[in-house]
Design a protein around this nucleic acid. Sequence first.
RNA 1: UGGGACGUCGUCUAAUGGUAAGACUGCAGACUCUGGAUCUGCGUAUCGGGGUUCGAGUCCCUGCGUCCCAGCCA
Length: 576
Amino acid sequence: MSDGLKTAETSESIEAPRPSNFIRDIIIQDNQTGKFGGKVHTRFPPEPNGYLHIGHAKSICLNFGLARDFNGKCNLRFDDTNPCKEEQEYVDSIMEDVRWLGFDWEDRLFFASDYFDQLYEWAIQLIKAGKAYVCDLTAEEVRATRGTLTEPGKESPYRNRSIEENLELFERMRKGEFPDGSRTLRTKIDMASPNFNMRDPVMYRILHAEHHRTGDKWCIYPMYDYTHGESDSIEGITHSICTLEFEDHRPLYDWYVENLGIHHPQQIEFDRLNLTNTVLSKRKLLKLVTGGFVSGWDDPRMPTLCGFRRRGYTPEAIRNFCAGIGVSKTNGIIEFALLEHHLREDLNKHALRVMAVLDPVKVIIDNYPDGQVEEMEAINNPEDASAGTRKVPFSKVLYIERDDFREDPPKQYYRLSPGKEVRLRYAYFITCTGVVKDESGEVTEIHCTYDPATHGGNTPDGRKVKSTIHWVSAAHALDAEVRLYDTLFLPEDQRPDEDADSDLTSGLNPNSLVRKTARVEPSVLGAAPLTKYQFERVGYFCADKDSTPEKMVFNRTVPLRDTWAKIEKKAEKKSK
RNA sequence: UGGGACGUCGUCUAAUGGUAAGACUGCAGACUCUGGAUCUGCGUAUCGGGGUUCGAGUCCCUGCGUCCCAGCCA
């Protein structure tokens, strides 16, 4: 069956097969009927008024992915019709993020503003056809005459101006003879339509504002509805994929290309991404940045692509996530855990293992020679033999994780405790012989003995130990700042995006960022920003852009799954 | 209460008139020099009511629920 998908000849790629979805079905059908001559041409059309977030990633993967899978093309087009909100900074960041995600628009970088001249010509064409008119009503008056959900609107008193007068007025609008908001060019359709978008929608508004690309060439700017379909048409787009809220706009989209008599792409709507405990609305993200609630668009707690990148997420993980969630028209919400699943899956395969202690307590190995240092061989990535091994210094005084020792161990706890033996990863078996405490009762030193025969962590007598813990040599470890992230919003609020005008600030998690000084094995010294590690038994970390050889800084990308924490939590619940 | 769309495990997606499947989550276990990874097992779903049909998640009727629309934003 020829369904337009890559055939054996072109699909040598090892990428997982993509599940079908209703949009692929439409394309397959279009290819069979020859609707677009078998061509598939999509576009990703961001407005440059903010940074891209994970929701955009879904659209990017969809549009570029469809083009790739059906041997088509995908354009990058900036929908820059509103000079008041759009900036070059956003254009630059969007291009960087699309590339980082792994997609390439080749030579097809476009701007809706590239089409302003053509759009203007077409507007004149519609005026001449008696299908558009200049309206002198103010914004308030237009609103007042638009009607309601159940009542039709009223026709504008200017609706039946002569074509000549409309032409002249529109020309004078363009020349800048009228102040902002004093007039609009409106499409003459139907003020009684049950669809508001058809009640004589505005095509052009007067805006004496400098545009980031066209400068002061224009003081009238086309509206989204008048611009989008024509831009698609100009670029030869076949399938114009957008989110559900534009469903009501489709009749207008169709109206413009039909009445202009130009190529008619097919608009298809899909469900936008919602993620639990995450805010994706542009307005709210902007507020988080401008309100100083985060350090910027790339704050590692932000769901922006640059935020995820800085946090240590990989493009592969995000792409796999987008492929995994599917595409439909159901308005749902994806659990954040699914994103983390794909993240861990990728990081597990690629991140270098290293030992770091986040909450250190001193261990002294009483029978280990003073001043002796041994280089222990450690595996860099058990999932990837080609990553090789490294040497980690070992000595008499070490740090281990405070949580890896219990003076009074609960049931099922099999790490270090008095009289118990554990393995120090890649080093020796040690047995706890006693502790030293301060006045407050906190353990300050754990004393142990080691078994010299267990060098490297192996036993000649084959004896087993229940637990292997990580460590660093006190004299050799680096002090590094680690930034531990939790959700930006209170964990119990699964839908912080739901309420359009929620306060935001009251729902913020005060513990979303915790800084600590960790002790890290020396091999990480000088790691470049974005270098990814697994701090063994703790989590995945990534060197931050603030990191320097003098002061290393690591972001916790995501913790490792912690089975013990679960067991303990359950036991706690039980005892209550 | 006008119009547009959508209702399948806790979550997301599939099944295109013919055994309701997969992933994530959860639970139980195996294994392990990471309580990581891996492996095994378990569990839960067709919004309700009618109808058509040998057979309905799928088609028809009807009810209910959810989302979107009254920007000179996109």
